[in-house]
Design a protein around this nucleic acid. Structure first.
Lengths: 191, 191
DNA sequence: GTAATTTATTAACCTGGGTGAACGAACCGG
DNA sequence: CCGGTTCGTTCACCCAGGTTAATAAATTAC
């Protein structure tokens, strides 16, 4: 029984015992080393993940090859390239493990079975999508409305633990500036 | 019968005649003048809208009072402040009509009834959320990866008709620069 | 424990967009 | 049709962040 996965789903919908068994039966554990890829840009994302242990980053690649880190994912969060997963298309984004990670995966077809066969499956799909959509909206609002200094403070505030675990150049990319600029911001803030 | 609304929903799920009647019965038309607000920041968004006619902009307000235009909405699209609508909280975003508009509105409670009473209601909720989530992801990727010039070209490409209908300062805000800078970009591009 | 590599900081210079203001054009309202 | 407002462009100047490169600090490898 994948208790973390089950109880996370139960934050959204009610599950009976058969349904819990079913969900546990379609989720398989995969392990990743630091810097391994859960998904490379260009691949098709054929499974949704649930992070049991570890830390990941989502990134997109600019025309000049530079990687922009968009977001971080941690324990008890779902992960996938929605864009790729939903239409079986080549993923624009990549997903990389920043630490050794353990990720439960559910295939596309099994997720559709979950939506169909679990009583509140469709509702779960809606609620989880609403949830992550709101996160993305917040991030979009922030990048429009906040300057880099504020965004760095937001980051430190939102992810107090991550600051120690993540190389600075991923943070600077997330904030939307280059490493020298993040250094300047940090210097300004410490004075 | 609100045929545009019904057929838009039918792009996502199947509806029988009773369900079409039901949906038509819970949607009410409201008319707005140019510059009227569908929702002001701080208000709670208690209904989801379906734009029958018109053009709207979504914006967020910076600490200094400056409005940042995040997105535009047009005919046959749904509209709401999800963040406000979903948790009945004060909306961070505002929604304003850029042209005289006609918007069908469905109250929160009636939308929940739609989700529960229409056979594929929950699925519709999931699919529509997935759809707009992908849009938002694309925009986030773009603002991270593209420079203002590219974003302006994207805008012109994505919304060829809107360029004529929207004041330049809303476009510049959407692109993420100030009006003088958009002028410079336009000048560069025309040379 | 030391060398090699990677990462963070700092410095000097450059640049694209911000700012404030002036000007011109387009758009209204009467 | 005219006077007023609003909107887009342009100019001069400024500045935050980019760039390149050097250095220092921290990791990693052996």
């Amino acid at each position: 029984m994948h208790v973390n996965l089950i109880s996370t789903i139960e934050h959204f919908i009610h599950l009976d015992d058969t349904e819990k068994e079913f969900i546990s039966s379609i989720a398989f554990s995969k392990t990743y080393q630091k810097d391994d890829y859960f998904l490379r840009p260009g691949q098709v994302c054929r499974e949704v993940g649930f992070i049991q242990k570890g830390l990941i980053r989502y990134y997109t690649v600019k025309d000049n090859g530079e990687e922009m880190t968009l977001h971080f994912g941690k324990e008890n969060e779902f992960t996938s390239s929605y864009q790729s997963f939903l239409n079986h298309s080549a993923s624009k984004r990549g997903i990389q493990c920043l630490e050794a990670s353990e990720i439960l995966v559910i295939s596309y077809d099994n997720l559709q079975r979950l939506y169909e066969e679990v009583k509140e499956g469709q509702k779960f799909g809606r609620l989880i999508c609403e949830f992550i959509y709101l996160q993305t909206q917040n991030q979009l609002d922030s990048i429009y409305a906040d300057n880099p200094e504020k965004r760095y403070l937001n980051f430190v505030n939102d992810y107090p633990d991550l600051q120690q675990r993540i190389p600075q150049y991923y943070i600077s990319s997330y904030v939307g500036v280059k490493p020298p600029s993040l250094s300047r911001i940090r210097k300004r803030l410490s004075l």
